[in-house]
């Protein structure tokens, strides 16, 4: 078996609430190799929380526990903030949903990318500038010199997201966590951004965790898919096998999508069953079969 980049065992995220403890993530386990791993589920299924827990971004009073949370064999569970900050960005990066909220509105795009790079790699401004231009080129921005000088409000959503990707990939992280990176984008731009991300991840041999609610998108773009329901992984599938999903929840999600090629009078509606929450599950941890 190839060395996995990230090992997660029995990850739990808990928030205290007036009604007692709320378990947002309930015992998630998986291995991430140099692959594209999709995490799919509805809102509230704990998919984003899983990503945030790995990055140590769950704020108190939220609590993260796990039997094991290892990056390249080294435990990253509940590290002190200072050490976590060293990891974040340089070894694990995250691309968030909406570029409008994740870019600094009062700093030029170039300065932001250079800052992100120098924070982790150090080096002179000239080197950082070279790197920033190179990264903007890598995400297929046509006129990087001009874009370097623009402010975030002057670029479109698709371009903003490409800038985010450029910034996140500048320090060459081993793992990229992308949380709904394309849901704020148009269908026509979406494909472009995805193929750019795909190319970069493949060329650099990175591990990608792709969090999304869009089953079809994930099945086209990822190697392997985890389906989450109520804080647990209910099914793991090779992306090509998605349409042979066995869990009734996955099947229900797939059939509730309207399709252009197969018109129906009424869409089947997902009937949730209590047993999905706590029923027995058999989960394969690793992608290597």
């Amino acid at each position: 078996m190839t060395q996995s980049l990230l090992q997660v065992r029995n990850l739990r995220v808990t928030f205290p609430s007036r009604q007692g403890e709320f378990h947002a993530v309930r015992g998630v386990s998986f291995d991430l190799g140099r692959e594209r791993l999709g995490v799919v589920g509805e809102s509230g299924s704990g998919k984003s929380m899983t990503g945030r827990a790995i990055l140590g971004l769950v704020r108190p009073p939220g609590r993260v526990t796990a039997d094991r949370l290892e990056l390249d064999g080294e435990s990253i569970l509940n590290l002190p903030e200072r050490r976590m900050r060293k990891l974040r960005g340089s070894r694990i990066s995250m691309v968030m949903q909406d570029p409008k909220f994740s870019l600094n509105p009062v700093m030029t795009v170039g300065d932001q990318i250079m800052e992100a790079y120098r924070l982790h790699a150090g080096g002179s401004r000239d080197i950082a500038r070279q790197k920033a231009l190179e990264m903007l080129n890598a995400v297929q921005i046509r006129d990087p010199e001009r874009v370097m000088k623009t402010y975030p409000h002057e670029v479109s959503g698709g371009m903003g997201q490409r800038i985010m990707i450029a910034m996140m990939l500048a320090p060459d992280p081993q793992i990229l966590i992308a949380d709904e990176p394309t849901s704020a984008l148009d269908v026509s731009v979406r494909g472009e951004v995805l193929s750019i991300m795909d190319g970069l991840v493949r060329d650099r041999g990175m591990g990608l965790i792709f969090i999304s609610h869009d089953l079809n998108l994930v099945s086209k773009f990822c190697d392997r898919v985890l389906i989450m329901y109520a804080g647990r992984i209910v099914e793991t599938l090779a992306a090509s096998d998605l349409h042979n999903a066995r869990h009734p929840y996955t099947q229900g999600l797939l059939s509730s999508l309207p399709r252009l090629d197969a018109p129906v009078k009424r869409l089947p509606v997902l009937q949730r069953e209590e047993s999905w929450r706590d029923g027995e599950l058999q989960i394969k941890l690793s992608g290597k079969i």
Partner: peptide, 14 residues
Amino acid sequence: LDVSVQAEILNLLV
């Protein structure tokens, strides 16, 4: 909305 909820609303609209 989530896809499963989308299906419910689309049915309702029809």
